[in-house]
Computed example of a mutant assay.
Amino acid sequence: MADVKVIGAGPSGLMAAEVLASAGHRVSIHDRMASPARKFLLAGRGGLNLTHSEPLETFLTRYGDAQSFLEPAIRAFPPAALIAWANGLGIETFVGSSGRIFPTQMKASPLLRAWLRRLDALGVRLLTRSPWRGFDSTPTILALGGASWPHLGSDAAWLPGFAAKGIMVHPFRPSNSRFLVNWSPHFTGRFAGVPIKNVALTYRGRRVRGELMISREGIEGGAIYALSRHLRDEPGAPLVIDLRPDLTEETLATKLARPRGKDSLSTYLRKSAGLSPAAIALLRETGTAPDAHAIKALALSLGPPAGLARAISSAGGVARDEVDEHFQLKKAPGTYCVGEMLDWEAPTGGYLLQACFSTAVMAARHLASMLEKG
């Protein structure tokens, strides 16, 4: 039995603590906030998306250029294992229409309460208002988070300590963020917060399906998040929006060929093309002709991401070659980095939490095995 520290009481830190305590070690979790898992609770407010039900081979591709970096950890603790873990806490799950997996209660708070009870029963000590104070000789797992939603705890205050140690950390950038668009006040006054569902987006040859959400500052939603890294890193091209992806241009043109009669243009487009009021308003806002070709290829110019502080997640972090295959720091043996503080990103859909859990399990299992060997 050894004394082990986990720094950070988000999902990565809590999972690492559980694995280590289950292996018989004395674990203390330190977190600088007054209560644990603040961002986790916020993420679960609209429905806690734990993971995704798609085949694992497809699932792994969602991590882009970080796939090879994360794949061993996710294979070792895959979505099926995460679901079984949640079930073991008494949290039942279901698969949504998009393939995403949620707790039946949809919220994070019941899961967190059950989890904290389990950790308490394992003897884990939770020390709040206890920030990381730098590297020491105690076996440690760092789960310090990225740099989005800093007021919830992930403020990257750990960066100077890593710089002093000579550990490369790539700058944090917004991921899964809204992108700025210079909307008119009239448009945002009516449609801010309104989704446009079942669209297809194409950007520099990449096409995704999903929904958009109009915001006062710009545009966001699942389809935007799926293209987030490309919109951020390869700016300058128009985002092409297909407002009726289930119809061919020819079929849509036939529908629009019916006489308009006394209908207003909005009523005509709603009846003939099946467009929502927000989609019709988007055509007007962008000066797009209401014909079949334009409805299936509306071009929208985007500005930069809205900013890191309110992005769902962050890209960047501890460079991949600074850690070994178990996420142990090469320049600080016995100290591991897990979760969002590592250099990877993923779209929403369950991929973010899955990688946070999987990296924590990988690191904690390895640390436990090293401690057992003495």
Rank of each mutant, 00 (worst) to 15 (best):
D3Q: 12
V6Q: 09
V6R: 05
I7R: 00
G8H: 02
L20M: 13
P36Q: 06
A43M: 09
G44Y: 08
T51F: 04
E57T: 14
G64D: 05
Q67C: 12
F69R: 11
A73K: 11
L82A: 11
A84T: 12
L89N: 08
P103R: 09
P103D: 06
R125L: 11
R125H: 11
W132R: 08
W158S: 01
G166P: 14
I167Y: 07
M168L: 13
N176V: 00
R178C: 00
F179T: 05
V194E: 12
N198E: 14
A200T: 02
R204G: 03
R206P: 02
M213S: 03
R216H: 15
E217A: 13
G222W: 07
L227D: 00
R229M: 01
H230D: 14
P235F: 03
I241M: 12
E249V: 15
T251Y: 00
A257C: 10
R260I: 11
G261T: 11
S266Q: 13
L269Q: 02
A273D: 01
L275Y: 01
P277N: 11
R284N: 14
E285W: 07
T286L: 14
D291K: 07
L298H: 00
S314K: 05
G316H: 07
G317T: 09
Q328C: 15
P347K: 00
H366G: 00
L367N: 05
E372H: 15
K373E: 13
